[in-house]
Design a protein around this nucleic acid. Sequence first.
DNA 1: TGTATTCCCAACTACATCGGTAGGGATTGC
DNA 2: GCAATCCCTACCGATGTAGTTGGGAATACA
Lengths: 143, 143
Amino acid sequence: MAFSSKTDYGLVALIELGSAYPSGGVMQVAEIAARQSIPDRYLEQMLTTLRRGGILRSTRGPKGGYQLMRSPSEVLVADVVNCLEGESSTKDTPTRPTAEFQVLLELDQQLEAARQSLLRSTSLQDLIDRRDVQSQEQSMYFI
Amino acid sequence: MAFSSKTDYGLVALIELGSAYPSGGVMQVAEIAARQSIPDRYLEQMLTTLRRGGILRSTRGPKGGYQLMRSPSEVLVADVVNCLEGESSTKDTPTRPTAEFQVLLELDQQLEAARQSLLRSTSLQDLIDRRDVQSQEQSMYFI
DNA sequence: TGTATTCCCAACTACATCGGTAGGGATTGC
DNA sequence: GCAATCCCTACCGATGTAGTTGGGAATACA
């Protein structure tokens, strides 16, 4: 049960922006899209959503772009995921009648709680660190 | 992030069959479907899948029906969920190139592991017990 | 002031999946 | 033989996913 492509794209974009954060931290859609080989006009939509969600700020015109509102360690993966996949509106459970369905509802809430707990315990900075560790390991093969 | 209706229907059907297990434990599709108010011709498909998955056994003809292959405490919710939603084949990750996507893949595997862990720690008998406890609580209101 | 650059907003499309319906066949008990 | 039951497979409409596209509005810079 993977993330949707929206969520994936949004997260990798934020990893890029988070990596740039210490040094100014402004990047343009086209730049991020090129580095990650994803469609730029599509990525634009995710960044717009993240801006509306208070995670990014944008500047228009030449030399414009996007940057993080907070530092990478203050952005939780849960924030991002909820922002990006909360999108498709408003499906509250139609509440099936029987006790059996009720039990499944509880089980489902248990699963969702576990998921949120993991997502809340991971920050953007954690993802950046993992990427850096991994890149390091990768380069070891060439020694 | 709820279960699909297939998974829901399959699980409630198994709760019904599990409750009947001590006393013979044969029930017919139409019977289960009526008790849970779900479309019988649709439920048929889920029970077929569960039979192919080795969770149910079936008998045809008059007085036929379905029954559990193992006792409810030997059937894990993980078995059922994997059987029912493993269905729609063939989606192996197209393996995105960058290190950033790799990190997301790991995170996703972490989430999936947590989910499976919870589903593996819950048996059909557990669900039956929870339903019974809940029905008990429900009836307390009428004292 | 003009113009290129960048983000902004919204509509449109192709395709897959979901939830369900439907037709007809195979087995079995009576 | 015949009715009950499961079995297999095709089909269908609605919804969601993964984009594409067509413009508009702000801004740096000449």
